[in-house]
């Protein structure tokens, strides 16, 4: 990512595959279901039906950098992110969750889902630490694979979205990011 931006590099970028050539919705759903069973609980189900996200949402994501570069983003209502965090913490969940608990737990789910998606993509690739906040913008609608699910009756989306073309840095979408 820090190498000199030569014409050769640009031509190489142009030849990059888009995510829909590399993975499909069913694979993403299967990966998410496996993560849910392991982290959230054996009886936890993700139902693949589209549903409207509420107004107050929170995202967690990891970046994948390699032959395909982009982000794996989980987005759900803030209250659902808190419920998910409680489900992960189980008996050790405090009565009142703070932002750090939610960032830790919701970020870890993105980390596990993102790591499995990265393993299903061409490598070698790097995986970033998870971030929580306002999701990175979708740069290219053609380089996007999104799965809408419902967990415990609440909507949640899993978006695998390309990072090209680049946006100016810093991006407004990350202003409210919570460092982990």
């Amino acid at each position: 990512m820090t190498s000199t931006d030569t014409g050769q590099r640009r031509r190489g970028s142009d030849a990059r595959p888009v995510i829909t050539e590399l993975i499909d919705e069913m694979t993403i759903l299967a990966i998410a279901e496996e993560a849910w069973v392991s982290l959230v609980g054996e009886d936890e189900v993700l139902v693949p039906i589209p549903s409207e996200l509420p107004g107050d949402i929170l995202s967690s994501w990891v970046d994948v950098v390699g032959p395909w570069t982009g982000s794996v983003v989980l987005t759900t209502g803030r209250a659902t992110a808190e419920e998910l965090s409680r489900a992960l913490l189980r008996e050790s969940a405090p009565e009142l969750l703070d932002d750090e608990d939610v960032a830790d737990a919701f970020g870890e789910i993105a980390n596990v889902v993102g790591g499995s998606i990265k393993a299903a993509l061409p490598g070698p690739s790097g995986l970033s630490l998870p971030q929580v906040g306002n999701a990175p913008l979708v740069r290219n609608a053609g380089d996007l694979c999104r799965v809408d699910v419902v967990w415990r009756g609440e909507p949640l989306t899993i978006s695998v979205q390309g990072a090209l073309p680049p946006l100016p840095v810093p991006t407004p979408s990350r202003e409210n990011e919570v460092p982990l």
Binding site: V112, G115, A119, L127
Partner: peptide, 8 residues
């Protein structure tokens, strides 16, 4: 114990 489970 990691999310990095790729062959490499």
């Amino acid at each position: 114990v990691t999310s990095e489970g790729s062959p490499e």
